[in-house]
């Protein structure tokens, strides 16, 4: 009996928890979540925020892909590693400051947006720490950019929801 108990315990410890479904389940999921089911109330403001956010995203993407800053000297075209991270971060801080200034007189539609902004700041710091060890990791650079985009979107959405634009 004790031996059987041990056998079961050992087998349990070795049991693989993951299993692969036979078919791609995402198709059905994507179909359902595409039926405009909101993930959060804040998403209501997306229609107006998207074009503005898209312009930021496009600008940031162009900056990263081409690594060209039209205001700087030609020597910065080969920017990479630490310098690129600093350039992206500085650019982001300017955009963020500009948005915050623009919306400084407007009330936010949620109370915890600054906390969310801080959480994103912490995430960005974590990514930057990782980048300090692996400066040319494109996945981490993409991640940093995405966090910055999320911050800009957040500021937009909480200050300029769709219903205020009508």
């Amino acid at each position: 009996m004790v031996e059987h108990n041990h056998k079961l315990t050992v087998a349990l410890a070795k049991l693989e928890k993951e299993k692969v479904p036979d078919k791609d389940l995402w198709v059905g999921i994507a179909h359902s979540i595409n039926d405009n089911i909101p993930a959060t109330p804040v998403k209501q403001g997306r229609g107006v925020a998207m074009p503005i956010a898209a312009s930021f995203i496009l600008f940031a993407a162009v900056l990263l892909v081409t690594k060209i800053d039209p205001l700087s000297e030609p020597s910065s075209q080969g920017m990479h590693g630490d310098a690129l991270v600093q350039a992206i971060s500085q650019q982001h801080e300017e955009q963020k400051l500009s948005l915050l200034t623009r919306f400084s007189e407007k009330a936010a539609v949620t109370d915890d947006w600054q906390q969310q902004l801080n959480e994103l700041d912490e995430a960005a710091s974590a990514v930057k720490r990782a980048l300090a060890e692996d400066p040319d990791n494109t996945a981490l650079l993409g991640m940093l950019q995405h966090i910055y985009q999320q911050q800009l979107l957040l500021i937009e959405r909480v200050h300029a929801p769709k219903w205020q634009q009508i």
């Binding site: 993930a39 995430a123 991640m143």
Partner: peptide, 19 residues
Amino acid sequence: DTLRVRESVLLRAAVNGDR
């Protein structure tokens, strides 16, 4: 660690409607 950071970024995006 990187995956965790990545996941938190993905979650934030998904909450904001990023499919």
